[in-house]
Simulated scan of single mutants.
Amino acid sequence: MEFRMGELFSGPGGLALGAKLAEFTDDTGEKWDFKHSWANDFDQDTVETYKLNLLHNPDAKTVFCEDVSKFPIGDKSILPDIDALAFGFPCNDYSSVGKQKGLGGVYGPLYSYGVKVLKYYQPKVFIAENVGGLSSANEGYALVKILEEFQSSGYHITPNLYKFEEYGVPQARHRIIIVGIRNDLYEEGIHFHVPEPTTPDPKDMKTSQQAIEEPKIPVDAPNNEMPRTTKKVAERLSYIPEGENAWYLGIPEELRLNVRGAKLSSIYKRLDHTKPAYTVTGSGGGGTHMYHWKENRALTNRERARLQTFPDDFKFIGSKESVRKQIGMAVPPEGAKVVMEAVLKTFAGIEYPWVKPTEKLQLDNLLGVKKYEPIELEL
């Protein structure tokens, strides 16, 4: 069975690649998969990356570079009907790394365009992704509002905090993913369950060294240019042991940073080769580029892409900084695959190991929290 999929805020294609990897054939010989229908993102380089790698067609007309507020949602001559909607709505205003403006920020309300698609198209299922900080934005009010709007659009929702390092991703990346099954299908017995972690034990988790070195990155791999490292930065790094950052006490006074900052931050933080990486990010200035556990340098973009589980032949389009941003903002394809595969198995009636969803994220447990007034959209 084929699920025609639409995407908002598609990024370079992490969710789409995860959906592609999730396909399987059941015991009867029937194939279950997602098929690209249309996608949208605001960034031109990101759109070009998506078209090249997911569609293998730089001229594809089904991926739109457009402000979501101007995207022709509902015009089925341009955006035809879909069976599934995937959207990693922008996390800038919910991230614990940022200022957590939540619904009051520029990006916070953008989830509402996903709601607009749900109301117009009523797909069988949706998959929405955001940072773990969403649960605390606006003192928890933001999550309540978002879940209520998803539910009122006609869906039974299952929010869960996925710790991707527990699913084979070599990175401590914690994300809220909300899966919604259309109410009529839920009543017919289509019940999504959170897939059980595959590597819950720390000793079984894939490490940053394994991700980057096993196998070696091919010499012709794209986006693998060595970063420029100044003599002073290289010298500073030489005093920082793996797993430590710029506030390590062994750094000589003349090489310490003359700034106030959180001593648990990732500024000039080296990877620990025995553990999954810390979270790959897509923004930030000097000292935030992720640093090799042994060599006195930042990681290459290809090394970051490996931590995000993109294959070596996945070519990102744009400048080094554009590529860095695309990689950091993406959903790890191997993490997305776990969720997408569970969605397909749910519809196929195939049982799989599952766990209860994160209790504190369930709407019934959040309804005591004050609600925001709905954001009105012109439909």
Rank of each mutant, 00 (worst) to 15 (best):
P195V: 05
P195G: 02
P195Y: 03
P195D: 00
P195T: 01
P195R: 07
P195C: 00
E196Q: 06
P197E: 05
P197L: 01
P197Q: 01
T198C: 01
T198Q: 04
T198D: 00
T199C: 06
P200M: 07
P200I: 03
D201F: 02
D201G: 04
D201K: 05
P202V: 02
K203S: 12
D204M: 01
D204L: 00
M205T: 00
K206C: 09
K206Y: 06
K206F: 06
T207S: 02
T207P: 02
T207N: 08
S208L: 06
Q209E: 11
Q209R: 15
Q209W: 10
Q209K: 15
Q210C: 01
Q210F: 00
Q210E: 11
Q210M: 05
Q210T: 05
A211E: 11
A211S: 14
I212M: 10
E213A: 15
E213Q: 14
E214K: 15
E214P: 09
E214T: 14
E214I: 12
E214H: 13
E214W: 09
E214G: 10
E214C: 13
P215L: 03
P215G: 05
P215W: 07
K216V: 13
K216Q: 14
K216I: 12
I217T: 08
P218A: 14
V219D: 15
V219M: 11
V219T: 13
V219F: 11
D220H: 03
D220E: 02
D220Q: 08
A221M: 07
P222M: 08
P222N: 07
P222R: 05
P222V: 03
N223I: 08
N223P: 09
N223K: 10
N223S: 09
N223G: 09
N224C: 08
N224G: 03
N224A: 09
E225R: 14
M226A: 15
M226V: 14
M226T: 15
M226W: 13
P227Q: 03
P227W: 01
R228W: 04
R228M: 01
R228L: 03
R228T: 04
T229G: 02
T229F: 06
T229A: 04
T229D: 07
T230H: 04
T230D: 08
T230W: 02
T230E: 08
K231P: 06
K232N: 13
K232F: 12
K232C: 10
K232I: 15
V233N: 13
V233G: 10
V233H: 12
A234G: 09
E235A: 15
E235R: 15
E235Q: 14
E235H: 12
E235V: 05
R236L: 14
R236H: 11
R236T: 11
R236E: 12
L237F: 03
S238L: 05
S238I: 03
Y239V: 04
I240F: 05
I240Q: 03
I240K: 03
P241K: 10
P241T: 07
P241E: 12
E242Q: 14
E242L: 09
